[in-house]
Amino acid sequence: MRLAAKANLGEGTISDFENGYRMPNPRKLAAMRRAFEGAGVVFATRGPTLTQPRWR
């Protein structure tokens, strides 16, 4: 599934962020982080890692 759907955000919000056009507000950033964490991404000081794939 797409990040926008998993984070319950608009495709434009994700696209603009990915392309450096704007910085989402803290609520939207938190929603994106929860979506990534729900997919198994672990955010660590050395950078994100994937524990095991959960999205198919």
Rank of each mutant, 00 (worst) to 15 (best):
45 T>I: 11
19 N>L: 09
10 G>H: 12
19 N>V: 03
39 A>I: 06
22 R>S: 06
23 M>A: 06
11 E>I: 04
19 N>H: 06
11 E>L: 11
39 A>Y: 02
18 E>I: 08
8 N>Y: 12
13 T>E: 00
30 A>R: 10
9 L>C: 02
3 L>F: 04
8 N>G: 15
22 R>A: 05
47 G>K: 04
28 K>C: 10
34 R>L: 08
1 M>K: 12
18 E>H: 07
35 A>R: 08
41 V>L: 06
3 L>V: 07
10 G>Q: 00
50 L>R: 12
23 M>L: 04
14 I>V: 10
53 P>E: 15
14 I>D: 11
34 R>Y: 10
11 E>W: 07
8 N>I: 05
19 N>K: 10
35 A>F: 08
53 P>K: 15
13 T>I: 05
12 G>S: 12
25 N>G: 13
39 A>N: 06
31 A>C: 01
8 N>Q: 14
5 A>F: 11
29 L>M: 03
9 L>M: 13
30 A>T: 14
11 E>S: 12
44 A>D: 12
32 M>K: 07
56 R>D: 14
22 R>L: 02
15 S>C: 02
34 R>K: 11
19 N>A: 10
17 F>A: 09
21 Y>M: 12
43 F>P: 00
30 A>Q: 11
28 K>V: 00
49 T>Q: 07
55 W>K: 08
2 R>N: 05
3 L>H: 01
48 P>A: 03
7 A>S: 03
2 R>T: 04
8 N>K: 14
47 G>E: 12
35 A>H: 06
12 G>A: 12
52 Q>H: 03
16 D>Y: 03
51 T>M: 14
16 D>P: 01
44 A>I: 12
52 Q>C: 13
7 A>C: 02
24 P>K: 08
17 F>V: 03
54 R>I: 15
50 L>D: 04
